[in-house]
């Protein structure tokens, strides 16, 4: 069977969604582990950031790969959504379901909102449209110019609104993962039970919970427990 006809079939589109989902899960996990180094102090986080920046062309290769994976995930989602909508042109007048979940029914919405957050997050933190962060990204003096990522994170999360948006996005991501991380096993034919309880469901809930708790711990630590407050103060006064 040709690869094209396989990929454009209903099962193939879901396989693309599942495989790209696994890769995005690995990215989300790696991203979180990288960020959690904030609890090890400014030197650790900044040297990790400098190490990533030091990858040079390889970093761009990784970025392009991730972009392609994300594009595949979104395109597969659009196909599944369109085909599903076309398959039932007239809806039922009485709603009803037996065992589907809220997370499963809202995958498209949670996914779209996480994507919107991702774009905002990149503009806010990587492209940097926030003047307060821009000064920390390009500190004067030190050669070569290494951004003070630790101070940027603390400054960013010191805004209640930014932290709230971030936490909301993590909860949506957790919702998305709680279905997606289990669903992918069925899509790839690795689940042997149907809906009946499987270790797969436990894995998905644990993974989603880990990501939400891990990622939310940073804004909560900054906002409520004053993580890095003194450091940011000293950096801003040194400038």
């Amino acid at each position: 069977m040709s690869l094209t006809s396989k990929l454009t079939s209903s099962i193939g589109a879901k396989a693309v969604m599942a495989v790209s989902g696994v890769l995005l899960m690995l990215f989300v996990l790696g991203h979180m582990l990288g960020n959690l180094q904030i609890f090890l102090g400014p030197e650790q986080l900044n040297s990790y950031a400098a190490h990533l920046q030091g990858l040079g062309p390889l970093l761009w290769l990784i970025r392009l790969f991730l972009l392609a994976v994300l594009a595949a995930h979104v395109l597969a989602a659009i196909k599944v959504w369109r085909d599903s909508a076309a398959a039932r042109p007239i809806p039922y007048s009485h709603p009803g379901s037996v065992q589907t979940t809220f997370a499963a029914r809202t995958m498209l919405l949670s996914g779209a909102l996480v994507l919107a957050f991702l774009i905002w997050h990149l503009v806010h933190f990587t492209v940097v449209n926030d003047p307060a962060l821009a000064a920390l990204k390009h500190p004067e003096g030190a050669e070569p110019h290494h951004p003070d990522v630790y101070a940027m994170v603390v400054a960013g999360f010191s805004h209640g609104g930014v932290s709230l948006l971030y936490i909301l996005a993590q909860i949506l991501l957790g919702l998305h993962l709680s279905h997606g991380a289990a669903s992918l096993f069925q899509t790839l034919g690795l689940r042997r039970t149907g809906k009946a309880p499987s270790r797969v469901d436990l894995f998905a809930k644990a993974f989603a919970g880990l990501i939400v708790v891990g990622n939310c711990s940073i804004p909560i630590a900054v906002l409520l427990f004053g993580l890095g407050e003194d450091y940011l103060f000293s950096v801003l006064h040194a400038q």
Binding site: S10, K14, V80, R88, S97, V98, T100, T187
Partner: peptide, 12 residues
């Protein structure tokens, strides 16, 4: 027919 999103409504 549409694609499967693993709602498991069918088997229910």
């Amino acid at each position: 027919f549409g694609p499967c999103s693993n709602h498991f409504e069918c088997e229910a």
